[in-house]
C-alpha cells in the first residue's frame, strides 16, 4: 500500500491517538453513557486504518498484522463466550450476570457486572475484525491487477 502526502501524514499522526483514546473511552463507558463495544471497536479499527492509509505499508508487515488481527479477533470472541460461560459455571445460566459478577456501585465505572468486560471483549473483536477486513480488501498484496 502506498502512503499519502506529508500533510495527510502529519494530520493522521495527530488524530490517530485521539481516535484510539476516544474508542477506548466509548468501550469503557458503554454501560454508563451511549456507545459500547461495537461503536468503540469500530473507532479503534478506524485509528489503525487511518495510520495504514496515511503511511502505507510493505507486504510483510501487512501479512503480519493480517495474521495478528485475525487471531486477536478470534480471541475477543472466545473471551466473550467465556464471560457468558462463567455465569453457567458459577450459578446456573448462560449469560447470568448479576448473581455471578455482582452489580457494583451504580453510576460508577466498576458497575454493571459482566457488561464492562463483555463490552471490552466485543470491542477487541470488532476492532481487530474490521482491521483484518480492511487489510484483506485494501492492502496491496490482495488486490487483483488486471
Amino acid at each position: 500500500m502506498r502512503g499519502m502526502s506529508p500533510v495527510v501524514q502529519v494530520i493522521a499522526r495527530l488524530l490517530a491517538g485521539l481516535l484510539f483514546l476516544f474508542g477506548t473511552y466509548i468501550v469503557m463507558h458503554g454501560h454508563l453513557t451511549p456507545g459500547g463495544g461495537f461503536a468503540g471497536g469500530v473507532l479503534v479499527a478506524a485509528a489503525f486504518i487511518l495510520m495504514s492509509l496515511a503511511f502505507g505499508s510493505v507486504e510483510h508487515t501487512e501479512r503480519n498484522s493480517y495474521t495478528l488481527s485475525s487471531v486477536v479477533e478470534s480471541l475477543g470472541g472466545v473471551l466473550f463466550v467465556c464471560l457468558a460461560l462463567a455465569g453457567y459455571v458459577a450459578v446456573a445460566y448462560f449469560f447470568q450476570n448479576a448473581a455471578t459478577y455482582g452489580t457494583g456501585t451504580p453510576l460508577k465505572l466498576i458497575s454493571g457486572g459482566m457488561i464492562l468486560p463483555a463490552n471490552i471483549a466485543i470491542g477487541i473483536k470488532v476492532g481487530a475484525g474490521l482491521f483484518a477486513v480492511f487489510l484483506a480488501l485494501g492492502a496491496s498484496r490482495f488486490v487483483m491487477k488486471d
Binding site: N97, G112, I115, N119
Partner: peptide, 29 residues
C-alpha cells in the same frame, strides 16, 4: 436495579438479551 448499568441499552443488549448479542458477534465473525 437488576444490572447496575446506568445505560439501559447496554443493560438490554448485554444482560437481558445477551443471546442476541452473541448471535450478532457470530454474524460479524
Amino acid at each position: 436495579e437488576r444490572t447496575g448499568a446506568a445505560n439501559v441499552v447496554a443493560a438490554v443488549i448485554l444482560d437481558f438479551r445477551g443471546y442476541d448479542t452473541l448471535g450478532e458477534a457470530t454474524v460479524l465473525f
